[in-house]
Design a protein around this nucleic acid. Structure first.
Lengths: 251, 251
DNA sequence: GGGGATTCTCAGCGAACGTTTAGGGTGAGC
DNA sequence: GCTCACCCTAAACGTTCGCTGAGAATCCCC
């Protein structure tokens, strides 16, 4: 299946997450696996962020000083020194910077108390890109740095999705979703009226190491329809040969 | 019934603890263990406080003079001089400042006898962050400095938690909780309708040196459910793959 | 209307996740 | 010094989730 992705201007796709003065938010991506760092960087650029990457701790600290990022995506396992140490040094220059740690799932539970308590957060590898974006939005929102983006709640038609409470309602009815269903729907709701191809959805919603087929997307769309569109005016529409769209009913 | 929740930021998540004039409360954190001081500082900032840190007594006295904090978190074992001495000097400049001592468990009796008599308070290391926050709230409330936060009682649905009396009731029935259960429930009740992840709960409710697994959280949630939800409309809900939420029944 | 491709549905499996129970260690109170 | 309550670990169990594969249904084009 080919995947005709329409050229989109990131600045119109999602309203830009911006600083109070209107300038784009800046992120520093720190990971020694350069291909992963590049993917993260390009996704963030696509979302309208300004991005720099670094492959090691020392480099990251230097970049932090010059680039003055608002948020840092920080691998905990770096060749030179430890992610927490990097965070400490970054904070020394820039106390308000938000940190999203990227950790290996099997990493020997080197849990550090207080990571999430201070407003920072982490995701475990392998993650999905939408999850990283969601965490980053959460971080910036809580830090009060980024301009509100309509807060934590997305709405399309008579459907709302609350990220904090992880609650989805349609016409007032509470709808229970599994983790994957929730992330899929969130991706749809962040891109209403826009046809999303299956490869596109796979890239965003499924973990980056997922080797499976586009068929899973069809399957999960079918689950979503059962829970969201059942007995109602349908909102998820198939665009044969292309993908799916989420559209508010009366249009 | 839908439930349009206003967008939340730390300043609205918990109503800010503020001075009478509406400005944020100021705290000075004094501990020579810098990583601990930083964790405390970032938690307090996350809660909307303005924070400074100091690593020694002399530095603390200087900071007290310039920063004019409302509360001081003060390690009793400092490299230069003793915590009580620091308190005396801080009080010389600023008689109304509240002091929360941070002490080692074994050093309690001799050093800080009579501390609480003056309205100050202490917590023993290792402590949980929620405990520190609770003590601080108590201190400020008693000092009359901070604007009331709805007082000492939390309420969600038909459940109430009285911090002063350490009393929990649901639908009028008194519920006996152990110390850990109580702190866990308090954390839930301070964050109703918000999904809390297990690492998040671990970071806040368990002592900062706790090396254990997220499994304890599951265990204590199960204890809580037995005491709180047994034979009633459940309020604690599992969000698979994410965490737990406390939600008032009728929604 | 027929053929072919695409999409949807259903059943089933393995693995991850969450819950519960039992048991040991520790500290507090008597 | 003894007992009891509490906190935590460990292990077993049951459930749910996520994915695969096969077949049925649908749509599009000719």
């Amino acid at each position: 299946m080919n995947d005709p992705r329409p050229p989109e201007s990131p600045s119109t796709r999602h309203p830009l997450m911006t600083r109070p003065d209107g300038s784009p938010v800046r992120a520093l991506v720190v990971d020694d696996e350069t291909s992963l760092a590049e993917v993260l960087a390009s996704v963030l650029r696509f979302e309208g962020w300004e991005v720099m990457t670094a492959g090691a701790g020392a480099e990251a600290v230097k970049a932090g000083r010059e680039f003055r990022p608002d948020a840092v995506l920080l691998d905990v396992m770096l060749p030179d020194f430890d992610g927490l140490e990097v965070m400490r040094r970054l904070r020394a220059d820039n106390p308000d910077v938000c940190v999203l740690f990227l950790t290996a799932r099997d990493a020997v539970e080197d849990r550090v108390a207080g990571i999430t308590a201070g407003g920072d957060d982490y995701v475990t590898k392998p993650f999905s890109l939408e999850e990283v974006l969601a965490r980053l939005r959460g971080l910036l929102r809580r830090s009060g740095l980024a301009r509100a983006q309509g807060g934590e709640t997305l709405a399309v038609g008579d459907m709302t999705l609350d990220e904090g409470a992880r609650e989805v309602r349609r016409g007032g009815d509470l709808i229970e979703l599994t983790a994957t269903e929730f992330e899929l729907l969130r991706y749809f709701m962040r891109n209403p009226r826009r046809v999303l191809s299956k490869p596109q959805i796979l890239d965003r919603v499924w973990n980056y190491d997922f080797g499976g087929q586009a068929h899973v997307v069809e399957l999960y769309v079918s689950y979503l329809r059962k829970k969201i569109d059942a007995g109602r005016e349908p909102m998820i529409h198939t665009v044969r040969g292309v993908g799916y769209v989420l559209r508010p009913p009366a249009s």
